[in-house]
């Protein structure tokens, strides 16, 4: 049994890390907004989903223009991601302005309910629009972009390993997601507005006294978080092909779990949490059946993210990289 697990481990790690980077970038959106507003923006999963639809629509448009096949695919996907990020970023700013800012002084639960409302609204808006434009179907199939597979002949290197293979889109997703995270990290830690975001997260009033425009900083945070979420939606659509308006829910919950696991409010923690959950999930998908003697199958893989969530909340509620908060009295 162990031999089997070891044999497939490289493939599990490849797939898990890719999935993990997707979770990680979405988790960043949760964690940034939580850091600055202490609000769990439950609409963030739907921002991701909306991004997947906008990106796919753009790519389908490119396809109907005949650009796919004539222009380099990587450039086209990057353009689609860039445009999508702009749109979802603006949607995020709008959501904050309309649904959260008027409630900023209200109890947190009220804003949370508002977030859940926005979530449903986005799901239905996307479903309605897609059905309208797509002959009554609410799912969307994107153009196939990366057709080739890359084989890694691991068995030649070590006889106890199986060969691993992945779609070239895998590499694209991985590289782009990592690039997004690095750009964000540099922005937050090295630029003036990144510093303003951290200052508002730590002490909003004092940041304002320093001359930081708090509302603008919060809008910026929503823009960046939502732009990243939307761009990741495009990556997801490119990687997995078919999307529907409900993909944001479970994926959002898992990304949220990743943010909690890493320590909500902590940007590097979100990345770590995303990677862990991605790998655990893929490991479960590949080995659950072997480990339980076929009693429990791969379809139970989703359970693990939430088992992790419960364990974290029970034993280390501040998360792996988070600091325990002492409530001020």
């Amino acid at each position: 049994m162990l031999e089997n697990i070891l044999r497939t481990l490289p493939q599990v790690l490849f797939d898990g890390i890719t999935l993990g980077t997707v979770y990680a970038v979405i988790a960043l959106g949760y964690t940034m907004v939580y850091g600055i507003l202490k609000l769990i923006n439950f609409a963030h999963g739907e921002i991701f989903m909306t991004g997947a639809f906008i990106g796919t629509a753009i790519l389908l448009a490119f396809s109907s223009l005949g650009w796919i096949g004539t222009l380099p695919i990587i450039i086209l996907v990057l353009v689609a991601m860039f445009l999508t990020a702009g749109v979802t970023g603006a949607i995020g700013v709008g959501i904050e302005r309309i649904a959260y800012r008027p409630l900023r002084k209200a109890p947190k639960l009220i804003a949370l309910i508002s977030a859940i409302g926005i979530s449903f609204l986005l799901q239905d808006l996307v479903r309605f629009t897609t059905e309208f434009a797509n002959d009554g179907n609410f799912y969307l199939i994107g153009p196939e972009l990366f057709k080739s597979n890359i084989n890694v002949p691991l068995s030649k290197m070590a006889s106890f390993l199986s060969d691993a293979s992945f779609k070239t889109s895998f590499l694209f997703v991985l590289v782009t997601a990592v690039a997004l995270m690095i750009i964000l990290d540099v922005f937050v830690n090295k630029t003036k507005w990144g510093m303003a975001m951290r200052a508002v997260a730590q002490d909003r009033d004092t940041a304002a006294l320093m001359g930081v425009n708090v509302n603008k900083t919060i809008s910026l945070t929503f823009f960046i978080g939502s732009a990243l979420g939307g761009a990741t939606g495009v990556l997801f659509a490119v990687q997995y092909g078919t999307i529907d308006p409900y993909i944001g829910f479970i994926l959002g919950l898992k990304a949220f779990t990743a943010a909690v696991l890493g320590g909500i409010g902590n940007i590097r923690g979100a990345v770590l949490g995303g990677l862990i959950i991605g790998v655990v999930e893929m490991f479960a998908a590949a080995n659950l059946s072997t480990l339980t003697n076929h009693v429990i199958g791969a379809e139970y893989k989703d359970v693990f993210a939430f088992i992790i969530l419960i364990l974290v909340l029970l034993f280390k509620p501040e998360g792996l990289l988070g600091k325990a908060l002492h409530e001020k009295v």
């Binding site: 003036k192 951290r198 730590q202 002490d203 940041a207």
Partner: peptide
Amino acid sequence: RIFPEMTVEENLYLGAFN
């Protein structure tokens, strides 16, 4: 009310946000 998670230098930079 200094920013506890920021370095002395970053705190000073924030003071000059304008």
